[in-house]
Structure formats: structure tokens, C-alpha cells
Design a protein around this nucleic acid. Structure first.
Length: 761
RNA sequence: GGUCGAUUGGCUCAGUGGUAGAGCGUUCGCUUCACAUGCGAAAGGUCGCAGGUUCGAUCCCUGCAUCGACCACCA
């Protein structure tokens, strides 16, 4: 054995040995309960970051259970990550001076597909470098046909059950990404702006968005506001266009803000939308999806066609010229921006597909309350889970991006001639318009061949198959171009990857019947809502059974200053760089050792270096024992008696270390069962380094010179058991030693499986 | 505004109802034949503040302070 553990010499070899042996692929054994973990699928658009290295926690659980003898499945996967990937890809296109509007959707889809394929493979290799014992034979990608087919069936089932509807609700729309987002995907940023006081005839209103005044349909005041009592029911006048709008009341108006009078613009503000719906007000939309002001007769000519920001300036100029701008004062408020591109989110009314979530959330709440799924750490995260699930609103599952499965709904163009279309014609030009008009110049085939997107009116008729129109028999049908929210796919991940049959659960695959529900879902708390909640809802909806028994929330990796790692801050540490420098074991250990439940981990070179030293310590303990065994001229393990309490010549000192070993075996098992990985590793560290190496090993050196075989027997006993305890945490060094000491032990050949987890009786 | 978390030796952080722990750093001594990615020793904390429960609190409860995170609202 070398003087120091050279991980580069072993890691690759060891991993491929494991892989070839097939130990990562469990065999179904009806006599034993399986242990199943589904990997939180990394995005296929990006290499791994330090957060992914925390899958170490899952590997620890998985390896532990495998060693216990449980049929253990860790199922890996990759996520197409719809919007996020398209965003990354569009940046890539932009660097080549192109945009998504230059391509029809088929071409664009193919380009992104190829882009992701490369990254997917990169991801897989990186996970192997970290030693993750995933069953690669069961790897799944969210866009592979058999996964998508199941997802579409779920959509149909939801639709049949009346849980899907097409609705026109105010949605968060990013004009740059060209898609709507769920409320969870909007981030709020502080912005310095101005509050403008405008003259609306009998009242003054205060607004930060003067460009939307042309879409106003009312002025609202608080019913308790005495200043306006006599004006309620009368009319206010929109300046510049002199439209009369009613003055109404609403309890949500803050008396102290501005003048206490709010201009109500239902089409372009969330609160206003609610007020509009409640009071049956007209909803007038003046902003296009491109972010430009519409050519609407209500809008002054010079403002039409301007982008929102320009329109604001121009409107203010006009207001000032007309003496309608009373005053402006500075205001700091938060503005919703796109979580991907930071562009300001425009609340807009666009027809979208929604899932009714209340009926799905109720069982998901009940399951956690009944303890069918347990969340760790409980106190903190159960509350978070309930808060979200109890306040859930209908889920907008439409995304106006290309990268994802299209919603399986078809519109007949004969019946719905008002559908808006965007496509690339034969001359490679992007053409937009309403079908009724376009059909006079272009054939249906030319349109469908170069299709970019369609936008059907809210009440458009549709059908769930692409046969001839059920109503008129026409064959001019096109599928919805909205694609599914990524979480609609990943929310079904444990079901689809294990092989559920959505139509007939009893016909699901053997894997599904055996491995579902899964045992533990380990993730970061920040996708508790996006992912865990959705999986709970889908799981219970389709199977009446929770998708996992336990949700374990792991720690978050931050930089040495305690800040979240992000590309924009430039404080990202590449896990693979650390692996290269100090070894996979070192990084794994550094991420787990002594870390409290769901706390932050500050990762630094020093910490990983310390972990590397620990791995080396174990290596050298083994090297010492190996040498002593050979010094004693012992050819193989048979020459040294197996350790036993009753063997002759066992000293109190020997007994003491064995007692401590048994204690640490019990403790490690106990901690692993209760998800206390930090404590487990900390205690192991102290035992290995201080009790075993510094004290016991030093103390027997003299005895070893006297040809006393008892201490050798003890050393070997303690070493092999300790290696087993350490293996889930630091698999490479322990397995490397296991291989080096082949002649000094009985089978098994591979540490990972065949060696059973020790018992510390 | 609401919720949650943190506050422990110089730094980073574990932990427990019964007189404080680790790693790193620091100081001193070691080229000891497993390991200098090491060995031996040492210094260093009234466990944020104020109350309460308890025979006893760093740990439980209440309040406060500071920092951080999340959610909601922001016309």
C-alpha cells in the first residue's frame, strides 16, 4: 500500500467495478421490503453544482440499506426543465445573433434536444465521479416518449374528472421569455420609482403605472373613507381620453396610500382584477404579449405600439401638457420580475390551462397530518408544507415555450377561425395574424409546417384527440402550442419512472408494484412547494397512496461567507474541481460531517482538505495493520483467529476497544435510521481517529513485537467493521482498502453489498 | 405585516435537563520505523440579554435585541 491514499489511482477503477458487478441494480425479492429513493432529477441544461453533491446524503442512506440486505433502488434521472432550459438555450442563440423567432417550433425543439443530450451525459458522469450508487439501468429522462405518454394520460384523466379547465385569469407574463409563470416563479425586487398623482375629475388618484390609465374601468375607494362618501356612485374621468368611469368601493383599498383612491385596471393588475371580477367590470387589455401597447381605439395614437416603458414616459408628457399630472413623489416599492431573466412581469389576461388544486391538495394535507408521509425536520418544514398547501390556488400549467410536451388538446380551425397564429412561411418570414385572415393567403399546410404558436380564445372549442373535428368533420386541426409546466411532469416522477399504468393501476409494471411508494424523498426545502407538494397531489390522485414515506430536507451549501451560491454572484464552487483536488470521499465527508439538520453548510478548501486527511488516516491505519499482518508472516486471514471475546489472551484494553466498537456500531445505525448524518459522521471520526488510532493502536505496538496474535486479531476485527460503518460516507477509500486487504479477509469481493452491516451486540 | 431559523472558545460549526465539544487557527515540543494529509502537550467560552419553570437550564417557557431566510402586500 502507498504511503498516502492516492484517490486518482482508485476512484475510477472502483466505480466501474461496482457498476459492472450490478450491485446498483436491485433484484425484486417479495420476501423483503425494498428501500427506494428517487433522485431529485437535475436539469439537463447545466453541469452539476455543489448542491447536487449533497446527493451524498441519499447515497449514504442507499448504501446503508443495501448493506443491510434490503433490495435497494436509487433511481436517477434528468429533467428537461422547460422554461429554464429554453432560457439558457436562447441566451446561447443570442450570442450567435439569433432568437427563437427565427425558427419554427420543430426546428427549435430539435436544437434544444441536442443541446440537452450533451449535458445529460455530462451530468451522469459527474454523478459517477462523486461515487453515487444509482441504478443507471433505470435512468429516465423527463422527455422520453414512455414518460411523456403517461403524463399525457394523467392530463386526460384530470380533464375527464373535471379537474382541468381553460380559463382566462390574470397571469404573470414575462414579455421577454414569452410565457406565463406560476405565482411561485415571480420574484419581487425593490425598485425606486415615482408615485404620480393624476386628475380624474372629482377625484385624484395615485399610480405608478400611468400608461395603463386607458384600460381603467373604475375608481375604487375604501367604504370607510369619509372623504369620498359623497362621490361613490358618481363618475370620474380618465384624463387625455375623457372616458367616464364609475367610482366604487372596495375594502382592500388602503386609505393612507396616495389619495386613497385607486384606478381599477383589471387587465393589468392582480388586485384590480379581483375588484373587476367582484364588481362585474369590463376587462380591457391594452398591452400585447410582446410588451407593446395595443392599437386600441381607447389609446391615443402616439402611444399605440410603444413598449411599456416608453409608453409611460409619453403618457406622462401628455398628462403634463394637459395639466392632469398634479404631482409626483418618489416611491420605493417592489416589482415582480421574472425569476429567470429579471424582466418586469406584466400581469395579463391570457387564456391558459389550469388544474383545480383544492381537491388534489386536501388528501395531500391529510396524508401528512395522519403521518403517512413524515417530514424531517418535522417542526419547521411541516408547517411550511401546510402553509402552502392550505393556501394553494389553481395551478396554471400552460407555458408558452417550445421546450416541453404540448398540451394534448386540438383545435379545429374551421370552428375557431379567430385563433391567433404565428408561423414561418415558405420565404422564411415570421407571419402573425388571425387564422380567418391568414387562410386567405396561406394554405393550412404551409401554416402548420412552419408553426410557431397559436393562441385560441378562451371559449374556443377543442377536443382531446387529433381525429377529424367531432363537430364539423374538418381535418384542419392543430394541437395546442402551450406546453406543460415542467413541474407537471416532475410532479409525476415517482409514478412515471417506476412504470405506473395511469389507465389501470393494476396493470402497472412489476417495478411499480414493488418499489412504490418510495421510502425517502430527500431534497432541499426550496422545492418543497414546486415539487414535493405536486408529487404528493399526483401520487394520491393516481394511486391513493403517498409517493414517499419520508421527506428528508437536507442542508444547503453556501459559500464561506454564508451566502447562497449563484452564478450571478460568481461564488459558485464546482464540486468536480474539489473532487479532482481532494477526492470524492473528501468532498462527501466535508458536506456531511458535523452538519446539523437542514442547516447551511459553508464549504471551503480547508474543510475539504481536513476531510481528505481523515480519509488518509483511515488508509494509513489499514496500511499499518496490513504491514503487521504481513510481518507476522501471515499469508491469509485463516492464520489469524477470528476475534472473539472468549479467545485466550484478550486484555482489558482489547475488550475496551471492542466495546467501543460495538457502541459506535449501534450509534451509527441509530443515527442513520433517524437521519442524523452529521452526528453519525462526527462520532465515527472521533472513534476512528482518537479511540482506535491514537489510543488502541499505539497501545498495542509493543505487544505486536512479541508475536502475540490477539492484538492483530482485534485490530483486524475493529478495522473491518469500522470500514463497513464508514463505507456509506466515504465509499472509495473504504472499498480501496477492502480490495487491498483481499488476502486478509473472507469474501465478499465487493464491500458494498455482500458485506452485511455489522451488528454491535 | 406574517412565519421560521440563527445567536456556543479567534474562525467555522456540532451538541445535551445535571458542573461545555470538534475541526481549523494559536503556543510549546517532536525528521518516534502507519500517516508531517502526522504525533504529544497547552492556552482559550459565566453557551446573545432579561425574566420564569425546575432540586438543577446552554438545552424547556415568556419577552427583548441583533442577524438571516421565506411568505404576503406595496395603486
Amino acid at each position: 500500500m502507498d504511503k498516502v491514499f492516492d484517490q486518482k489511482k482508485y476512484e475510477e477503477k472502483i466505480y466501474s467495478m461496482w457498476e459492472k458487478s450490478g450491485v446498483f441494480s436491485p433484484k425484486i425479492n417479495q420476501k423483503r421490503k425494498p428501500f427506494t429513493v428517487i433522485l431529485p432529477l437535475p436539469n439537463a441544461n447545466d453541469p452539476m453544482h455543489m448542491g447536487h453533491a449533497l446527493f451524498t446524503v441519499e447515497d449514504i442512506m442507499v448504501r446503508y440499506h443495501r448493506m443491510l440486505g434490503d433490495p435497494t433502488l436509487w433511481l436517477p434521472g434528468g429533467d428537461h426543465a422547460g422554461i429554464e432550459t429554453q432560457y439558457v438555450f436562447e441566451k446561447h442563440l443570442a450570442s450567435e445573433g439569433k432568437s427563437r423567432f427565427d425558427f419554427d417550433r420543430k426546428t427549435l425543439y430539435k436544437m434544444i434536444w441536442d443541446f440537452c443530450d450533451k449535458n445529460k451525459d455530462l451530468n451522469k458522469n459527474q454523478m459517477k465521479l462523486l461515487g453515487f450508487s444509482m441504478d443507471w439501468s433505470r435512468y429516465h429522462y423527463s422527455l422520453e416518449p414512455r414518460i411523456v405518454a403517461k403524463v399525457l394520460k394523467t392530463f386526460k384523466k384530470l380533464h375527464d374528472d373535471g379537474l382541468v379547465y381553460r380559463g382566462e385569469r390574470i397571469v404573470n407574463y414575462c414579455t421577454r421569455c414569452g410565457t406565463a409563470f406560476s405565482d411561485l416563479e415571480v420574484v419581487y425586487k425593490e425598485q425606486n420609482s415615482f408615485l404620480y398623482y393624476l386628475d380624474y375629475g372629482p377625484v385624484q388618484i395615485a399610480t405608478t403605472r400611468p400608461e395603463t390609465i386607458f384600460a381603467d374601468v373604475a375608481v375604487a375607494v375604501n367604504p370607510k373613507d369619509k372623504r369620498y362618501n359623497n362621490l361613490v356612485g358618481k363618475k370620474a374621468t380618465i384624463p387625455l381620453i375623457n372616458f367616464k368611469i364609475p367610482i366604487i368601493t372596495n375594502e382592500n383599498i388602503d386609505i393612507k396610500f396616495g389619495t386613497g383612491a385607486l384606478k381599477v385596471t383589471p387587465a393589468h393588475d392582480t388586485l384590480d382584477y379581483e375588484i373587476g371580477v367582484k364588481n362585474n367590470l369590463q376587462i380591457i387589455s391594452i398591452i400585447e404579449q410582446t410588451g407593446r401597447i395595443k392599437s386600441d381605439p381607447r389609446v391615443p395614437d402616439e402611444i399605440q405600439g410603444l413598449y411599456v416603458n416608453k409608453a409611460r414616459q409619453k403618457t406622462l408628457e401628455l398628462l403634463e401638457q394637459n395639466g392632469k399630472l398634479v404631482k409626483k413623489e418618489p416611491l420605493t416599492h417592489s416589482v415582480g420580475v421574472c425569476y429567470k431573466c429579471s424582466n418586469v412581469i406584466e400581469p395579463m389576461i391570457i387564456p391558459q390551462w389550469f388544474v383545480k388544486t383544492k381537491p388534489l391538495a386536501a388528501p395531500a394535507i391529510a396524508a401528512v397530518k395522519k403521518g403517512k408521509t413524515k417530514i424531517f425536520p418535522k417542526k419547521r418544514f411541516e408547517k411550511l408544507y401546510f402553509d402552502w398547501m392550505e393556501n394553494i390556488i389553481d395551478w396554471n400549467i400552460s407555458r408558452q415555450v417550445v421546450w416541453g410536451p404540448r398540451i394534448p388538446v386540438w383545435y379545429c380551425f374551421n370552428c375557431n377561425s379567430q385563433i391567433q397564429i404565428s408561423f414561418i412561411n415558405k420565404n422564411k418570414e415570421c407571419v402573425k395574424g388571425v387564422y380567418e385572415t391568414l387562410s386567405q393567403r396561406y394554405s393550412f399546410d404551409e401554416i402548420s409546417g412552419g408553426l410557431q404558436s397559436i393562441l385560441a380564445p378562451k371559449n374556443a372549442s377543442y377536443q382531446l384527440d387529433n381525429k377529424r373535428c367531432h363537430k364539423c368533420g374538418s381535418d384542419k386541426l392543430l394541437q395546442e402550442t402551450d406546453t406543460f409546466d415542467t413541474w407537471f411532469l416532475s410532479g409525476q416522477w415517482p409514478l412515471t419512472t417506476l412504470g405506473i399504468d395511469v389507465d389501470n393501476i393494476k396493470k402497472s409494471s412489476e417495478d411499480f408494484k414493488y418499489f412504490y411508494p418510495t421510502s425517502v424523498l430527500d431534497t432541499l426545502w426550496d422545492i418543497l412547494f414546486f415539487w414535493v407538494g405536486r408529487m404528493m397531489m399526483f401520487g394520491l390522485y393516481l394511486t391513493n397512496e403517498v409517493p414517499f414515506r419520508v421527506v428528508h430536507i437536507h442542508a444547503r451549501v453556501v459559500d464561506q461567507f454564508g451566502k447562497k451560491m449563484s452564478k450571478s454572484k460568481g461564488n459558485v464552487v464546482d464540486p468536480i474541481v474539489m473532487v479532482d483536488k481532494y477526492g470524492a470521499d473528501a468532498l462527501r465527508w466535508a458536506l456531511v460531517a458535523g452538519v446539523g439538520p437542514a442547516s447551511d453548510i459553508a464549504i471551503s478548501d480547508d474543510k475539504v482538505k481536513g476531510a481528505r486527511n481523515f480519509a488518509n488516516k483511515i488508509w494509513n491505519i489499514s496500511r499499518f495493520i496490513d504491514m503487521k499482518l504481513k510481518d507476522a508472516a501471515v499469508e491469509d486471514y485463516k492464520s489469524i483467529p477470528e476475534f472473539s471475546d472468549k479467545m485466550k489472551g484478550v486484555s482489558p484494553n482489547d475488550k475496551k476497544i471492542v466495546e467501543k466498537l460495538n457502541k459506535i456500531i449501534n450509534l451509527t445505525s441509530k443515527y442513520l435510521e433517524s437521519y442524523k448524518f452529521g452526528l453519525a459522521s462526527e462520532k465515527l471520526y472521533a472513534f476512528v481517529w482518537h479511540d482506535f488510532a491514537d489510543k488502541y493502536l499505539e497501545s498495542v505496538k509493543k505487544r505486536l513485537e512479541t508475536n502475540d496474535l490477539v492484538p492483530l486479531s482485534v485490530l483486524r476485527h475493529v478495522l473491518f467493521n469500522t470500514l463497513k460503518l464508514l463505507h456509506p460516507f466515504i465509499p472509495f477509500v473504504t472499498e480501496s482498502i477492502w480490495q487491498e486487504l483481499k488476502s486478509q479477509r473472507k469474501s465478499p469481493d465487493i464491500m458494498l453489498v455482500a458485506s452485511s452491516w455489522p451488528s454491535g451486540k
